[in-house]
Design a protein around this nucleic acid. Structure first.
Length: 561
RNA sequence: AGGGGCGUAGCCAAGCGGUAAGGCACCGGUUUUUGGUGCCGGCAUUCGCAGGUUCGAAUCCUGCCGCCCCUGCCA
């Protein structure tokens, strides 16, 4: 009798959707949308939203739109819409025919603004930005009404039309909703609906010199598209009454807005503004710098869409502010890559080993397993010879008790090769170890001793004459603080950047198998971690990014002392 | 004269009146030609705090405390 493992209930959003489907609220249809502003690259926080919105659409047989909320021509660029599309696709989602732009709705939105003016629900205000702020009041005090609030419908219509015609300067006038200057919710204190921006828009060009605000666009865009569940982050909770007010006055379909807590990650900054700064100030090599929490950064680093999707599914969806430990994401990557990554041997910090009793000039090929977790991955040949490289840290002249690896007089296994015993550590004049001399046991070919004797360690290695040189880039957290976002406002967050977030290793030695590594190819360097061939690789000069290390219990033992 | 949210383990997170799921992390053990993987086991007498209702409360009520968001012509 197999016992059913207790299953988690659906998250609160899916619970709402299931309830809606049960009651037939939307006739069983589920339409969501992912609505980015094309003013930057997507990051892991967006991935949570993408997985949620597209995931729900798939799960409930609905659909998810990709809509660009491009209402601010001052910040938006075509480059960003292309990158966003690429990243959503890479994550494994498909919007089908449903690619939209809020800017496609500008005429309709304009007509709705006219309708609100005619209804006496909107007015053209001549206050400047500072004055509007003053009139708005504070969190604890009500605002006061604009002196232009009671203009006639005719005058408002005339002024608004002339705003559209370009008769007025930027900032000189705005269109505002006439709601309630004493509302406790500040969003309802006669919010701005349209502003004058004499800027070319990446899609509508110079068709417009007035642009609707996000607040006067988002809800209607959802409405036009027939969105049923408009899923967004917590900070928009206060805006919901405003969206409802607009839709009520317009008399249009009301999507149901549901807010969830955005993703935060330890040692990571997910504010778009700050990511833009990192790129613009050259503190990283670009949006896809492998240290960046952007989707393209993770992609270049060696993360897989599967791992990111798995992560997004496992962290859950709720309304409580939360910060996920970055280790959780790393765990999801390891779990995915453990099953699929080709194993390979590469020595990051090489020290030469001479097998003194191995015939000079002799070479042989040994069989290596490509992936012990996947039988179909097959085998490959690895060359062996008298001179090898092993990892410098795998040898200790005077090892502590729990060090199992090579040391004078100790026998270890070279993976898939032979047992070797260290006979001498050759030093230079300064006393640095520059070479190890060992003997091998020919009877242990392949890695097993016929007499059944055991060794406590298996080392990875590379044959010196066959090795190819590689550059390896190691990455650490971009920030030294666990919660970089919570730095006091009077301090510069850039002080928290980790000066050691990137370590470039040159002269690493890899087995010849890696010679033709294609950019994007993923490998497990045995005992070292998961690595991704970088696009900076040149023929014969591969470059690898370390996506993440392997779990390392020895490192933990060492730390404990 | 403020409004809107949220508090279950180190980090996430189920639970929705019947006596604290699961994952990550951590700690043991075991397997292992990766100190990897896998496998087995441990890890909240208690759900922000205090009262109350009830045979019974993380779940209901009251009060308090703490944290987050809101005063862009950003999204």
């Amino acid at each position: 009798m197999s016992k059913e493992t207790p299953k988690s209930g659906p998250d609160f959003i899916r619970a709402i959707i299931e309830e809606d489907n049960r009651t037939g609220k939307w006739g069983g249809t589920v339409i969501t949308r992912f609505p980015p502003e094309p003013n930057g690259y997507l990051h892991i926080g967006h991935a949570k939203s993408i997985c949620l919105n597209f995931g729900i659409a798939v799960q409930y047989g609905g659909r998810c739109h990709l809509r660009f909320d491009d209402t601010n021509p001052a910040k938006e660029e075509e480059e960003f819409v292309e990158s966003i599309k690429e990243d959503v696709r890479w994550l494994g989602f498909d919007w089908g025919e449903h690619l939209y732009f809020a800017s496609n709705y500008f005429e309709q939105i304009y007509q709705w603004a006219v309708q609100l003016i005619k209804q006496g629900d909107a007015f053209v205000c001549d206050l400047d930005a500072d004055q509007i702020r003053e009139y708005r009041g504070t969190l604890k005090q009500p605002g006061k009404e604009s002196p232009y609030r009671n203009r006639s419908v005719e005058e408002n219509l005339d002024l608004f039309e002339r705003m559209r015609e370009g008769e007025f300067e930027e900032g000189s006038r705005v269109l505002r909703a006439k709601i309630d200057m004493a509302a406790p919710n500040i969003n309802l204190r006669d919010p701005v609906m349209y502003r004058i921006l004499k800027r070319a828009h990446h899609r509508t060009g110079t068709d417009w010199c007035i642009y609707p605000t996000y607040d006067f666009t988002h809800g209607q865009s959802d409405s036009i598209e027939g969105v049923t569940h408009s899923i967004c982050t917590l900070e928009f909770e206060d805006h919901r009454p405003l969206y409802d007010w607009y839709l009520d006055r317009i008399g249009a379909h009301h999507p149901q807005q549901i807010e969830f807590a955005r993703l935060n990650l330890t040692y990571t900054m997910l504010s778009k503004r700050k990511l833009i700064q990192l790129v613009q100030e050259g503190r990283v090599s670009g949006w896809d710098d492998p240290r960046m929490p952007t989707i393209c950064g993770f992609r270049r680093r060696g993360y897989t869409p599967e791992a990111i999707r798995d992560f997004c599914g496992r962290i859950g969806v709720a309304k409580a502010d939360s910060t996920i430990q970055i280790e959780y994401l790393e765990h999801c990557l390891r779990e995915d890559l453990n099953k699929r990554a080709q194993r390979v041997m590469a020595v990051l910090d090489p020290i030469k080993v001479v097998i003194t009793n191995y015939p000079e000039g002799q070479t042989e090929e040994l069989d290596a397993v490509n992936n012990p977790e996947d039988e179909t991955a097959g085998m490959r040949k690895v060359p062996f010879s008298r001179e090898l490289y092993i990892e410098r840290e795998d040898f200790m002249e005077d090892p502590p008790k729990k060090f199992f690896r090579l040391s004078p007089g100790r026998e270890v296994r070279l993976r898939y090769a032979y047992f070797i015993t260290c006979t001498e550590a050759v030093k230079d004049a300064q006393g640095n170890i520059i070479e190890l001399r060992c003997t091998y046991d020919p009877a242990t070919r392949g890695g097993d001793a016929p007499d059944g004797r055991r060794v406590k360690a298996t080392l990875h290695w590379v044959s010196a004459p066959h090795a190819i040189d590689a550059e390896v880039r190691l990455y650490d957290h971009l920030f030294t603080a666990e919660q970089p976002a919570s730095i006091p406002k009077d301090k510069d967050w850039r002080e928290l950047l980790n000066p050691e977030s990137l370590t470039v290793l040159k002269g690493c030695k890899a087995e010849p198998f890696l010679c033709g590594a294609q950019p994007g190819a993923l490998y497990q360097f045995e005992r070292k971690g998961y690595f991704c061939a970088d696009r900076d690789s040149a023929p014969g000069a591969p470059v690898f990014n370390r996506a993440t290390t392997l779990r390392d219990t020895w490192a933990r033992v060492q730390q404990k002392g």
